[in-house]
Computed example of a mutant assay.
Amino acid sequence: MKLALFNDYQLGVVSEDRIYDVGAWVDWRAERPQESLVRLMAAYDQVSSRLQGFAEAPSQPLAQVRLRPPVPAPSKIVAAPVNYYRHQDEMNRQFNNAEHTIEKLGFFLKAPSSIIGPGDAVQLPRADRRFDHEAELAFVVGRRARHVSAADAHKYIFAYFALMDITMRGIEDRPMRKSFDTFTPIGPWLVTADEVENPHELGLRLWVNDDLRQDANTSDLIYDSYQFFALASSVMTLEPGDILTTGTPEGVGPIHPGDTVRIEIERIGEFSVGVEAEQSQQR
């Protein structure tokens, strides 16, 4: 099932080119969307059969609504660095910096305040630095997890979605360079794990304007979604509503004000964001 947040953070089910407002069916509180999402995930086994009848709910064309970040306020974003071998080679070539893979680096955290949604704009804070796009498969934790094995991780993943990890290049640690406001576009909606089936055989592509920059498959991950879940849960408690994102493949490149960046993941969907100079630069 495709679950979207739209307009004033109402809950919708997406089917083809329409969105169905099902918030009243699950006691959704639009003024508290993250809390409502956590409550929905906890009760999903009980309400999913009701949601299957979404066609009875009020609907409108998908093109006429504003999609919001499908996970608006997680307690943390756990991110995988250098989790595709070809991206490791790319980093070494471009930056003359011998990068280790996730096996040595572990993971890093991004600020939840960096999240934006489909159709929003990435704000580049400095004119003297390079900023890159990174296309990633991400997922939301469905229930509290600690010391979960890779074999059991699928039981804790509620849904998948697309994520762009916008990055400022430089010598600073990753959490700083990747946590500026607007540096984590996510969307277009949540696709529940049962519908994705196998998250490790998904095509992933990203365009800047009309230029295809990244074209890969999640089968090339070093640590797949389940292994990464196990790694993160071995260190910290993962709370319902937390985001984990699995890293980017080769093809990373710069973005500039005026660009449009579009990401597409097989079985999940696509969305775009604009790129602008931050207002402080324009004064």
Rank of each mutant, 00 (worst) to 15 (best):
G251S: 05
A79S: 15
S280L: 08
W28Y: 01
N209W: 10
E99G: 02
E270M: 06
S36C: 11
L62E: 11
A153L: 15
V275T: 11
D128I: 05
A24H: 13
V22M: 04
R66W: 12
Q279G: 01
V122L: 12
E35W: 10
E90A: 13
V82N: 10
L206D: 09
R66N: 02
D45T: 01
A151L: 11
F161I: 11
I265R: 04
H133C: 12
A73Q: 15
Y84T: 05
T248A: 09
G241I: 14
P69M: 08
A73N: 15
A43G: 03
S59M: 07
I77R: 13
H256N: 11
A216D: 15
D21F: 02
R93D: 08
D21Y: 10
Y160F: 14
H154A: 13
R283N: 01
P118K: 13
P69R: 05
Q34G: 01
A55C: 05
V47H: 11
V122C: 07
T101N: 04
P33A: 03
G23V: 07
P118E: 12
E266V: 00
F131L: 05
M168H: 06
L206Y: 01
S36H: 10
H147S: 11
E278L: 12
D215L: 12
Y20W: 11
E266A: 01
E264D: 09
G251R: 02
V22Y: 08
I102H: 07
G119T: 09
S233F: 06
V82S: 00
A4R: 07
G12R: 09
V13D: 02
L105F: 00
D27G: 01
F229C: 13
R18Y: 02
N198K: 15
V13K: 00
Q60M: 04
Y20M: 05
D89P: 00
G253N: 08
A277R: 10
A42Q: 14
G187F: 03
V26M: 01
P69F: 01
N198Y: 01
P61M: 04
T192A: 05
S15W: 11
K2Q: 15
E266M: 03
D242S: 04
R86I: 06
R205G: 01
A121N: 13
E99A: 12
Q88R: 13
Q94I: 05
N83M: 02
F54L: 01
D128M: 00
L244T: 06
E239T: 13
D210R: 13
S113M: 08
A55F: 08
F54R: 00
F108A: 06
N198A: 03
V122S: 07
Q60E: 10
E239Q: 14
E250M: 01
T260S: 04
A151P: 00
Q281C: 08
H200A: 06
T245G: 07
R174M: 12
R32A: 07
A42C: 00
P74Q: 08
Y85K: 05
Q10W: 11
G117V: 10
P33M: 06
K110V: 14
G203H: 11
F180E: 02
I166Q: 07
P70W: 08
S113W: 04
A43L: 04
M236D: 12
